[in-house]
Design a protein around this nucleic acid. Structure first.
Lengths: 219, 219
DNA sequence: GTGAAGCGGAATGATCTCCTCCACATGCCT
DNA sequence: AGGCATGTGGAGGAGATCATTCCGCTTCAC
């Protein structure tokens, strides 16, 4: 899924190794999303159908794995956001598409927001910094477009949207999957309703000030 | 804070013991909220300014503590919801007050929703069952009133509101407290905006079906 | 003043994870 | 085909972390 935005390694990696690497990242992504950043390495390996040794050869420690997962995830989210911006006819529909689909974006945001430890790990990674800034730019484009066309209320910033989004994405895990999905869908629809521009409403109804990129993640 | 809704113990508990017990519950509540249901018992004890021994004498194991905390929390939330229902002039303002304040309600909902383990612990506790049902009733009263007065959209149920609420309450912990509060406040305002009845809007704009009490927590 | 109830926190033992290491397997290049 | 560099699995050592107990001392209540 990920383009090679990471610093190109010198050795091209053997075919099976590459496959295993991808499986590991995929498994780790799911496990992190479901059970937080502390899942045992061994379980990740098992889910990836790989030995622990393999996992450790590819990623020297947990931090490296987390970084890789978040990078991969961010890259996916970025691709998705850009696609939405380009392919959708209106800013509003791009916004809807962005918010509706991407569990992708959710994971990395959630991961990096929830645990102080993880934040420390991610902190200062240059690739991530670049990805994040690109993602925020994409977000801003969409939000800007939607606001310019008069469909999105103007007293929110891209960061506002991102945060609400992140808050909503945490899926309740105790319900049946179908129920959880239903609930998330409805919650999302409600938020979108709240985000819609109202010609009659006062222009600055929200409390406080617009959130900024700096509020989003403090490095 | 809590009325004695729990089964009355036979021995009245010495004054200092009672105080310690309350401190423990208070500390545990905060720690669970901040760091999840797995925080070490010792840290809870330290925060409560109490020895581990004391903690264990009062609560034979972690499960007992969790149960006690959630009960206490639910009771608070219930009291709060009832107060809002009675004291506020309109259903809408009661709803706003309910959603705006009560981090209380948030904790127990969050705790019981997030971890399957915790859910198992809580499952079948009769006191809790009663509390929860009373709370949902209070919720329904408020939601019903607000809908009857025409301020709340009619295609949501009390359970819908409760879930959105629970989703939003999870505070991002990596931001400065002030920022987190700001973000939560704005998110809440957006959701409220989405919840408001619109005379012009179609009456059933939300996807799926209304959530029910059964969706909320499956026992 | 005195006995019962309560307290603290060091010590114990069990559990859990990370991570290394190496005999073996597999892809790749010629 | 064949050789070897690259890659693989997973048992086990080392260490960390926690829950829980226990008992000499303190505090309340009468």
């Amino acid at each position: 899924m990920t383009a090679d935005l990471s610093a190109s390694d010198d050795t091209p990696l053997r075919a099976d190794a590459r496959r295993n690497r991808d499986q590991i990242i995929g498994a780790a992504k799911k496990m992190f999303a479901e059970r937080g950043p502390d899942v045992p390495m061994e379980e990740i390996a098992r889910r990836a159908e790989v030995g622990v040794g393999t996992l450790y050869r590819r990623f020297p420690d947990r931090d490296a794995l987390i970084r890789a997962v978040v990078r991969d995830n961010m890259a996916d989210a970025l691709a998705y956001a850009r696609a939405a911006a380009v392919e959708e006819p209106t800013g509003w529909s791009a916004l809807v598409r962005l918010l509706s689909h991407s569990t992708e974006l959710g994971l990395s945001v959630r991961l990096s927001m929830l645990s102080p430890t993880v934040r420390k790990t991610l902190h200062g990674d240059p690739v991530l910094r670049e990805l994040r800034s690109a993602l925020l730019t994409a977000f801003e484009t969409i939000v800007g477009t939607a606001q310019a066309e008069g469909s999105l209320r103007t007293d929110v910033s891209a960061s506002d949207v991102a945060i609400v989004y992140a808050l909503l994405l945490r899926q309740p895990q105790t319900m049946a999957d179908s129920t959880a999905q239903l609930a998330t869908g409805r919650a999302l629809a409600l938020v979108l309703e709240g985000l819609r521009a109202r010609p009659d409403a006062p222009p600055d109804a929200l409390p406080g000030r617009r959130l900024t990129a700096a509020d989003l993640l403090l490095d």
